[in-house]
Nucleic acid binder design. Structure first.
Length: 486
RNA sequence: GCCCCCAUCGUCUAGAGGCCUAGGACACGAGCUUUUCAAGCUUGUAACACCGGUUCGAAUCCGGUUGGGGGCACCA
């Protein structure tokens, strides 16, 4: 269908502040498609709306993409033969192409004021008619046009859409979609401020940048006939279109800010691993046809195919994302987790403390099966880093009996006799004490756990004892005997 | 209102006419394990929106209905 000899795709966000997870998925599929097919992945900045421009948004976008692990081949801050890759730097290009369209009568100047346009629209709405421009300025005499231009009358340029034409969009995900040209508005191509609209800029750029496949969200499907008409007006070959299903809120509406986090940056800040987010989002609307669900980015590249993309929208379900994070976290080796833990520690209230690596490795090993996020090691088991300041009241009620203090005193004594104890040594000592006191092990275990950690759950008791060390453990037992009153 | 898209467990999905008494994952329930909490293992509940048609045979093909969503800017 097309003569492109190389796969070239693009991700074309507008710099409005942050990367939306829907945008992440679009970027991902483009990226995977490019890498899988030895193609080129272009990043293009669509900043033709000056009102919405946000300072620093481009830098943030690039940083976030980088965090996700996507590297682009051409784009801002990168060389490429088709630049510049920022639309605000391509204004002259859009103008000159529009000029040729005007000369061929495929586009025309429109001097109508915003007021007239909105009056026209409300009138049409009241008559329950299709709202569209009435082509008034199409019929202006060329002398009148010349005069108005000379006088500097504000104007836009519109595409002259022919009536009674069937416009066909071929989409590899949705098949053939037909539109009636009578229902398509004479789209503004160049705005009053001289900037192009999305429709014009994206068509010109995709053509000039030799984009072979346009892979974008389904919200673009209704405006694709305009783009098709533009390609035809220019006499250009069309790229292959692929409109991706939408990402949805739990109530099935288009994923939006109002119903939770939508920025990739939000998930990054919450401690999700980039590989989890990417893996999760990849499976929203696509699947490899096997039962495997956990993939690295490289594995995704290997197995991705655009044919595996389905048509219906997918709810963004945080619970499953959390499960993915758990899975990816457990695939990481201890060294990596310790590295991440250190980053969190440096930002925590323990920033000034020095913890040696041996200890951190033991903590990570103990906490691993109990967490989905690395930062939970600090949140859920702060007792590894500081002595507990309080004790869970419920656990006291359940586990701290009249004789607990006395029993723990004996146990602490037994512990103090140990020399460089290992996990097993603590266990042996505890068993011995229980036997001596003629009580079950459980009577001791729960009390010690509470004394050491302040809470009722966590890693194996002997593991905690070993990680804390003999001196610290005894100190905490004594402190608890002192502080816990029933 | 008009145009377009979509439709399998609560959610993500497998399924391209017989392999489907519909498979997997998350979540949820139960059991085992563990003198904690998790994890792990085993196991259970749970879906083809509806109505017609085509066919020997339909979750799969066709039509309609219903439902959901998206779009109708000098925003992208």
């Amino acid at each position: 269908m097309n003569n492109y000899n190389q796969i070239r795709v693009r991700f074309a966000p507008s710099p409005t502040g942050y990367l939306h997870v829907g945008g992440l998925r679009t970027a991902l599929y483009n990226y995977l498609f490019a890498r899988k097919n030895n193609g080129v992945f272009v990043l293009r900045i669509e900043d033709t709306d000056r009102a919405r421009y946000v300072e620093g948004a481009v830098e943030n976008l690039i940083d976030t993409l980088h965090w996700c692990g996507f590297d682009y081949d051409e784009g801002p801050q990168k060389n490429g033969s088709f630049g510049p890759y920022t639309q605000s730097e391509r204004l002259e290009i859009y103008k000159s192409y529009t000029q040729t369209l005007i000369e061929q009568k495929k586009a025309y100047y429109c001097f109508c004021t915003q007021e007239r346009i909105s009056e026209l629209r409300t009138a049409q709405e009241n008559l329950k008619q299709q709202t569209k421009y009435d082509k008034l300025c199409l019929h202006l005499d060329h002398n009148v046009i010349a005069q108005k231009l000379k006088d500097g009358v504000p104007h836009v340029v519109r595409l002259n859409i022919e009536a009674d034409k069937k416009v066909v969009v071929e989409d590899i995900i949705r098949g053939r979609v037909e539109f009636d040209s009578n229902l398509i508005d004479d789209q503004v191509l160049l705005k009053g401020d001289g900037y192009p609209t999305y429709h014009l800029a994206n068509v010109i750029d995709d053509h000039l940048m030799k984009i072979s496949h346009v892979i974008r969200g389904e919200e673009w499907l209704p405006s694709t006939p305009k783009h098709v008409l533009l390609y035809d007006a220019f006499g250009w070959e069309k790229p292959v279109f692929a409109h991706l299903p939408l990402l949805l809120n739990p109530d099935k509406s288009k994923l939006s800010k109002r119903q939770g986090d939508v920025a990739v940056e939000d998930y990054r800040a919450k401690g999700y691993l980039p590989e989890s987010l990417v893996n999760f989002v990849a499976l929203l609307g696509w699947n490899p046809g096997t039962e495997q669900e956990i993939f690295s980015l490289d594995e995704l590249i290997n197995i991705f195919s655009i044919e595996g993309v389905n048509k219906s929208g997918a709810v963004f379900n945080i619970e499953k994302l959390n499960a993915f994070n758990f899975e990816h976290l457990r695939k990481k080796n201890d060294t990596e987790v310790v590295r991440i833990l250190k980053e969190y520690l440096a930002k925590s209230k323990f920033a000034d403390h020095k913890f040696d690596d041996d200890k951190l490795f033991l903590i990570v090993e103990a906490m691993r099966p109990r967490i989905s996020f690395v930062k939970e090691i600090i949140e859920n088991s702060s007792y590894f880093f500081e002595s507990p300041e309080s004790y869970d009241q419920e656990v006291i009620q359940k586990r701290w009996k009249d004789d607990t203090s006395e029993n723990l005193k004996s146990l602490a004594e037994e512990f103090s006799k140990l020399l460089n104890p290992k996990k097993e040594d603590y266990e042996t000592a505890l068993h011995k004490t229980a036997e001596l006191l003629n009580i079950g092990n459980g009577k001791l275990i729960h009390g010690v756990r509470l004394a050491l950690s302040g809470v009722g759950g966590g890693p194996g008791l002997y593991e905690i004892l070993f990680i804390l060390g003999k001196e610290e453990s005894i100190r905490r037992i004594e402190k608890a005997i002192e502080k816990i009153r029933i």
